[in-house]
């Protein structure tokens, strides 16, 4: 794949026909981004945290029932409702369109979490990093990502640290990051069914740019005008997707 031209616009496509709802992406994300796990009590309270979740919607009545799985992560909107309301600029959209969350700047008002129609921002109710990781398990923490302190919102960054790593490597080799394949978030990397695609939407040759033009492509809550950079592909029909 060619090198990116101009500023890349990183995007993701999720093929719901491939997705089996296995949640490998969820666990991979939690492992990669040091997202803490919850206790049974807090999980029951709705306080478990994940930057990507597999949402299941069951509709219909027996025997005509259908369950749909939908991996839901930060849609990295071009017009993000969460960014508009943040009082301190802790949530902002960076030049490449990734919606970042700057933890030392966040005051924990949770306004962004309420403004986000996708429910993808998580709040640190407790001092997770201090006592929720047993010493043994702290060994598996990723040094590229911080341990979020209590009282701040956290969210998906498309594994921005991976982008930086790829960019460093490319810079040393005197080139730009390839528009596809070189920088991949943990969820996309892990997907056993290869239902997730990632790349530069600005490069028309990337798989993801092609998928975005597919007849199966749709965006979540498109009517809100948030302009997500995560594209979903409808279930149940064949379409010419580029080879893996």
């Amino acid at each position: 794949m060619a090198e990116a031209k101009g500023t890349p616009r990183w995007g993701m496509a999720i093929d719901l026909d491939r997705c089996t709802g296995c949640q490998a992406c969820v666990v991979a994300c939690k492992q990669e981004n040091n997202v803490p796990f919850s206790s049974p009590e807090e999980a029951a309270y709705g306080r478990e945290m994940a930057w990507i979740r597999v949402m299941a919607i069951t509709e219909g009545e027996y025997p005509k029932v259908k369950t749909r799985y939908l991996p839901m992560l930060c849609q990295q909107c071009d017009n993000p409702p969460s960014v508009k309301v943040c009082p301190t600029g802790a949530t902002y959209k960076n030049p490449e369109g990734i919606v970042g969350q700057i933890y030392p700047r966040c005051i924990g008002c949770r306004y962004c979490a309420n403004a986000c129609p996708y429910q993808v921002k998580d709040f640190n109710w407790y001092n997770w990093s201090g006592f929720r990781w047993p010493q043994e398990m702290r060994q598996s923490l990723n040094p590229d990502v911080s341990l979020r302190p209590r009282g701040v919102i956290e969210k998906c960054t498309f594994c921005h640290h991976r982008l930086q790593k790829a960019r460093d490597q490319a810079a040393i080799e005197g080139r730009k990051v390839k528009s596809e394949g070189e920088y991949v978030p943990a969820c996309v990397q892990s997907c056993p069914a290869q239902a997730m695609f990632f790349g530069d939407l600005n490069d028309p040759e990337t798989t993801i740019a092609k998928l975005a033009r597919s007849s199966r492509a749709f965006k979540m809550l498109d009517e809100l005008g948030t302009e997500p950079k995560v594209i979903y592909l409808k279930e149940g029909e064949w379409s010419a997707t580029p080879r893996e």
Partner: peptide, 29 residues
């Protein structure tokens, strides 16, 4: 009540525009 609602009340003053990090586009500011 707002300050009590903050996850980080120690950073409450961050919302002051111009002097601190307050962003005037936010209704909270």
């Amino acid at each position: 009540s707002i300050i009590m609602d903050l996850g980080r009340p120690d950073r409450a003053l961050f919302v002051i525009p111009f002097l601190q990090y307050g962003r005037v586009q936010s209704p909270l500011v």
